[in-house]
C-alpha cells in the first residue's frame, strides 16, 4: 500500500516542481508579439501560396501589421473580402483591389499548331525551353509539359489532353500567380476578371513576323494591326508583331474580335453574338442562332475558363 502512496506523492512533487520551473522560464524568455498578427493570420486563408509575395500567410500578416499603408498589399486568394476584414482589424481604410484571374495566352492546340518534332527529354517546361524552341514551329507558345499545373496549389488547372494546353478553372483560380512564375515562356497572365467575368484578350504571344507565325500556327497573332486601328479606346498596342490589349483601357466592345483575321483575339463569357447587329432580334432568329453560336462559346470557355 505504502509504495503506491509514495509513488503518487513523488510524482505530484515532480509535477509541481516542473510546473514552477516552466512558469519562470516562460516569464523569463517571453517574446512580445503584436496580438494583431494572430488576428490577421486568422482571417487569411492559410493557403501559404506566396501569391502576396511574402513567405506564407504568417509572413504576410506580420507585414500587414507593420505596414502603414496596406492599399498596395493584396491577398489574391482571399480577395477583397479578406482584405476588408484585415483592414477593419488594423483600422485602415478599406482598399478594394480589382479581382484578377489567370489567363492562358496560347491557343496552339494540336490542330492549330502542328507538331514538327517529338520532345523526349525530362518532362519539364523549363528544361524544354532552355533546350530549344519546342515541338512546333512556334518558339513562343505553350510547351505543353504542364509545369504551371504542377505549380498550382489550388487544383485550379489541368492539362487538356485533346488540345495539349493548360486549362484554368476560373472558379478555383485565386490569382496567386504561381503559374505565371512557373511558365518559362510567360504565356500565362493575370488579367482583370471583368464584369460578369467577361474578358477580351489576345490569345497569342508569338513575336515572329506574320508569315512565320502563321506558318507555325493557324491562330497566331500575325501583327497585322487591324485591331489597333479598330479599337475606339486605344487599348490595343502592337509591339514586336504582337498585339496586346490593356485591360484597364478595354471597354469590352468586342470590335477587335471581329476584325482579327486569325481569330487570335478571344472573348470570354459573352452572350452569343447577333448575326446582324442592325436587325432587330426576333425570337425566331435567336432560336436559330443559339445552337450555332454556342459551340464556339463553349470551345473558348473550355480552353480558357
Amino acid at each position: 500500500m505504502s509504495i503506491i502512496v509514495i509513488t503518487i506523492l513523488a510524482l505530484c512533487a515532480i509535477g509541481v516542481t516542473a510546473a514552477i520551473i516552466l512558469y519562470f522560464v516562460a516569464q523569463k524568455f517571453k517574446v512580445y508579439e503584436d496580438p494583431r498578427i494572430d488576428e490577421v493570420e486568422e482571417v487569411l486563408p492559410a493557403a501559404n501560396c506566396g501569391g502576396c509575395g511574402y513567405p506564407g500567410c504568417r509572413g504576410f500578416a506580420e507585414a500587414l501589421v507593420k505596414a502603414d499603408d496596406i492599399s498596395k498589399m493584396n491577398c489574391p486568394v482571399g480577395g477583397a473580402t479578406v482584405m476588408s476584414q484585415v483592414a477593419s482589424i488594423l483600422g485602415h481604410e478599406i482598399s478594394a483591389a480589382e479581382p484578377t484571374v489567370a489567363v492562358v495566352r496560347c491557343n496552339g492546340t494540336c490542330e492549330n499548331r502542328p507538331k514538327t518534332n517529338q520532345y523526349d527529354g525530362a518532362a519539364s517546361c523549363t528544361i524544354a525551353a532552355t533546350l530549344y524552341s519546342g515541338e512546333t514551329g512556334c518558339q513562343y507558345g505553350c510547351l505543353g509539359l504542364g509545369e504551371c499545373v504542377e505549380a498550382c496549389n489550388f487544383d485550379a488547372m489541368y492539362m487538356d489532353k485533346e488540345t495539349g494546353l493548360p486549362v484554368i478553372i476560373e472558379d478555383k483560380c485565386v490569382s496567386c500567380g504561381a503559374c505565371v512564375k512557373a511558365c518559362p515562356n510567360n504565356i500565362i497572365e493575370l488579367r482583370n476578371k471583368g464584369p460578369k467575368s467577361r474578358r477580351i484578350f489576345v490569345s497569342c504571344v508569338n513575336k515572329d513576323k506574320g508569315a512565320v507565325a502563321k506558318k507555325a500556327c493557324d491562330v497566331a497573332c500575325i501583327g497585322c494591326g487591324k485591331c489597333v486601328k479598330e479599337c475606339p479606346f486605344g487599348a490595343i498596342t502592337l509591339e514586336n508583331n504582337l498585339a496586346y490589349i490593356d485591360y484597364t483601357k478595354c471597354k469590352l466592345c468586342r470590335k477587335c474580335v471581329v476584325v482579327c483575321p486569325t481569330h487570335a483575339i478571344h472573348e470570354l463569357n459573352f452572350p452569343p453574338r447577333k448575326e446582324k447587329p442592325a436587325d432587330k432580334p426576333s425570337a425566331e432568329a435567336k432560336a436559330e442562332e443559339a445552337p450555332k453560336a454556342k459551340p464556339t462559346a463553349n470551345d473558348e470557355t473550355t480552353e480558357n475558363k
Binding site: G121, A122, S124, T126, I127, T130
Partner: peptide, 9 residues
C-alpha cells in the same frame, strides 16, 4: 533518370 536535364536547368 534524366539527371543531366535537371542539373543543367
Amino acid at each position: 533518370r534524366p539527371l543531366l536535364d535537371y542539373i543543367r536547368m
